[in-house]
Amino acid sequence: MLISLSAEEAIKALGIILLSVVASRIFIYFITNHASRLAQRTNTDFDDALIDASKTPLYYLIILIGTDYALHQITTLPSLTTGLESAIFVFEILLLAIFINRILGVTVEWYSKNIAVKTETKFDDEFLPLFKRTSAIFIYGAATVIVLDYFSYDITAIVAGLGIAGIAVALAAQDTLSNMISGFVIMADRPFRVKDIIELPSGEYGEVSEIGLRSTKILTLDALMIVIPNAKIGDSQIVNYSYPDRRMRLKIPVGVAYDSDIDFVTEILISIAKRQPHVLESPVPRVTLESFGDSSINLLLYVWIDSHKDKVQVINKINRDIDKMFKKEGVEIPFPIRTIYSRNGKSKDGGE
């Protein structure tokens, strides 16, 4: 009676296993002939890649689940079924880890090829491979812990050891982690973008060339590349000349003699500004009387330009034109004069 019962259970278990194999083949047929066709109609290849990555792990996972259920139907051979169930559980966890890792890998690869290449920064290009490797370690590590816990191994010591190792790595790589976290903050907050013109607290001025995982690169007007750790630039006060408007207002100081006609000088300065090709028509150039100096009336000429790269060129051209026009119109640019009084009561004027 025991033998016939064992045979009956074995036949039943074998039937369940065969049904699971058939179910897995039906699943693959459906995925290949229906889901793949639907995916081909979409504008993206992301769904095609997901289907290709998930077919094999899910095929074997269905068979293993069916086999595991079949073994539970056999009650007369507990030593054999227990060992097989344990082995199947290990393979199920392994296949599940492979499946999750493949899905994550396909997602990262698709993002790298379709989204990351279109962004202005290389931050995601550097971060995604690191994220992919780190995620794989975490997924397979979690699978290992689950398997060890299933076999009643004490994982407390392992988890504690991993925690201590993590703290040691974090302390050793404190600067690197700080730069990476600051890089995330820069990407999220976006105080500046690639091609923005920024000024650092130290006075360096240039165009943001690249925002990386650990550092930001700035190309100065002298064609020098400045590499700054993200942690340092994240804690600094940055002046962004390109955000929210790429236009820039220039203030050009001009000093004229006290006997000059200010209205006439203003007309000259406005006409010079309007002739410059890089000066915008709106907002219009304007002149203000800034202060009364020791030997001159100090004016400020305000002009707007459309690019920070033209700053030096515009200032140089305007100053040269001012010098020519003032000489032509007889407008005096004074130099400092100091009156010296001597002990005998006479005075003598002279330039510094």
Rank of each mutant, 00 (worst) to 15 (best):
2 L>V: 02
12 K>Y: 11
15 G>R: 08
24 S>C: 08
27 F>K: 00
30 F>R: 00
37 R>F: 12
43 N>R: 12
56 T>R: 06
56 T>G: 04
61 L>M: 11
62 I>H: 02
63 I>G: 03
63 I>P: 02
67 T>F: 05
73 Q>W: 11
74 I>Y: 09
79 S>P: 03
80 L>Q: 10
81 T>A: 06
87 A>Q: 11
88 I>Y: 09
90 V>M: 13
92 E>D: 06
96 L>K: 10
105 G>I: 03
106 V>Q: 11
120 E>S: 10
126 E>C: 01
127 F>P: 01
130 L>K: 10
134 T>E: 04
135 S>L: 10
136 A>I: 07
140 Y>I: 09
144 T>I: 13
148 L>N: 06
152 S>I: 02
154 D>H: 11
156 T>A: 14
157 A>P: 00
157 A>S: 14
159 V>S: 08
159 V>Q: 11
161 G>L: 05
166 G>S: 14
168 A>F: 15
178 S>G: 15
182 S>M: 08
184 F>I: 04
185 V>Q: 14
192 F>N: 02
195 K>A: 06
198 I>M: 08
213 L>W: 05
220 T>N: 07
233 I>K: 04
235 D>G: 05
249 R>T: 10
252 I>F: 01
253 P>A: 03
264 F>W: 02
266 T>Q: 13
267 E>W: 00
294 D>S: 08
295 S>T: 11
306 D>P: 08
308 H>Q: 14
309 K>W: 01
314 V>A: 02
323 D>V: 10
330 G>L: 10
341 Y>W: 07
341 Y>L: 15
343 R>W: 07
345 G>A: 11
348 K>C: 04
348 K>L: 15
350 G>C: 05
